[in-house]
Amino acid sequence: MRIRTIFTVAAGVSALALLTGCGAADMTKQASPFANAQGAKTVTLSVQSWVGAQSNVAVAQYLLEHKLGYRVDTVQVDEVPAWDALSQGRVDAILEDWGHPDQEKRYVTDKKTIARAGDLGVTGHIGWFVPTYLAQQHPDITDWRNLNKYASLFRTAESGGKGQLMDGSPSYVTNDKALVNNLKLDYQVVFAGSEAAQITQMKQFAKEKKPFLTYWYSPQWLFKKVPMTEVKLPPYKEGCDADAAKVACAYPHTPLQKYLNADFAKSGGEAAAFLKKFKWTTEDQNEVSLMIADQKLSPEEAAKKWVDSHPSEWKKWLPSTTHR
């Protein structure tokens, strides 16, 4: 009886091994099951949760689909997991990365499963911001040394007796807790938990002209809706943020990068070539972002509008042979 069971199991396992071809099943080489359906060439793009990243993807998707004949799948993954997914080929490209040295070392330098694809053309910057109407009322508020003076202005139910410094999505790079600590500020970091929640809250505050202090970044379409002024932190010096617990300086300015899956970069054909050439400006990105986030156009419509009005920019991204 037992022998028979063992035999059956063994037979089953070997049959499975035969069926799947070779002996090993490397799951890091699997594409998404939804990719390449119905014979179309498919590119899977990672979309991060912020709107700027959506704009990149929307325009790239529109051009890939309408000018190059690809089918595009988008998957929303947070930044760090996206690196992992990219290395496994579950997504083919990340179009906007804000700098992840650990991941870059692991995947690009060591494992060589991810390839650099150049600048996006946009420079990112993170900082602390107050609404401009507040900065006009209290001009000295834009220096971090005066923040404690105004802490009571920013008090909310969540922050208790301290001032509230609103942080966003858990996926973002942030040193704010350490900063508050090290700069001895009378503030409490409150995590909005997602960018969506943070934006909603900021818009509500702005509508009522209430004071608020928030972690924010540019390029960001929200600046057009809610003008904000940066609070100056101690200036950034190379390496001042090396020890996460002892940070006491501002965030750097980061040229945003594109990354492709290494295999895709090699054999991705026109799509890979196109994504490598894809490069635009902060203004371009904001234009599309504003259409998506504020005018509530669908990303596809927004991308179409931008593509229709900026032919000279995207023409140079396409391979010279294709003219459809």
């Binding site: 947070d78 930044e79 999505s169 858990p170 909005a192 938990g193 997602s194 929640a197």
Partner: peptide, 19 residues
Amino acid sequence: GLVGGGALGYDVAFGLAQG
């Protein structure tokens, strides 16, 4: 945790987001 609830929910979201 995704809308500012903080605590454990934020920690899980953080773990997922930051790997």
